[in-house]
């Protein structure tokens, strides 16, 4: 019987960071549906080791994340494994929104809208000032639908998640989880209406 260690609501547009020990299980719940949850991981004992989107894709020979996906680090080691997924598919190639990329993607006047990278930087620097932008890399977008087509296209499509859908991960090493509950209002990644998500952590 596993014990619930922690349960937190991450409000729309907020950052979140926490430590997860090896063997612990966490769940992210898309409480109201269609909410992109930008997520990144570090080895808690060596922050130079971090989640690697391309090594995860390369190892499983597939671009989408779901049950059974091993989240692989830049040292080619398994950091966590997705053990349950009621959504079905998650993105790891779309990255995080940022003030600068918003000017490119939408318009120069979107620069001052809130963004995931601002959340990431704030959470990292509050956690430990040794972190910097250099420590970031392409993240996971849980509950976000970014289909890649055989002719080479990539697009941000309407979500396939829904209220109460969740994903569960078991840590294979001690990790730091870094989350931005995505504030993007310019594309359908959060249904144009960012909503809260739930973080739960069990000892096993």
């Amino acid at each position: 019987m596993s014990t619930l260690l922690r349960q937190e609501t991450i409000r729309a547009g907020d950052p979140f960071m926490a430590r997860i020990e090896a063997g612990q299980r966490c769940r992210l719940v898309d409480t109201e549906g269609n909410e992109a949850v930008d997520t990144f991981f570090f080895n808690a004992n060596d922050s130079r080791e971090r989640y690697s989107a391309v090594d995860t894709v390369r190892r499983q020979r597939n671009v989408y994340l779901s049950t059974g996906t091993e989240l692989v680090s830049n040292e080619d080691r398994t950091m966590l494994t997705i053990v349950d997924d009621t959504c079905g598919r998650h993105d790891t190639l779309g990255g995080a929104c940022a003030a600068e990329s918003n000017t490119v993607r939408y318009a120069h006047d979107r620069k001052f809208m809130h963004s995931c990278r601002d959340n990431f930087l704030l959470a990292l620097l509050n956690w430990n000032e040794d972190f910097s932008k250099r420590d970031l890399g392409p993240n996971i977008n849980f509950f976000m639908n970014v289909p890649l087509s055989p002719d080479g296209q990539l697009r941000f499509a309407d979500g396939i998640s829904g209220p109460g859908k969740y994903v569960e991960l078991v840590a294979a090493m001690d990790v730091l989880i870094l989350i931005s509950n995505c504030p993007q209002l310019n594309n359908p990644c959060s249904g144009f209406n960012p909503t809260p998500v739930e973080f739960l952590l069990w000892d096993a």
Partner: peptide, 13 residues
């Protein structure tokens, strides 16, 4: 930045 390159141009090639 791989991700920003892909999403700005709607491509993975």
């Amino acid at each position: 930045n791989m991700a920003d390159t892909l999403k700005a141009q709607h491509t993975h090639k």
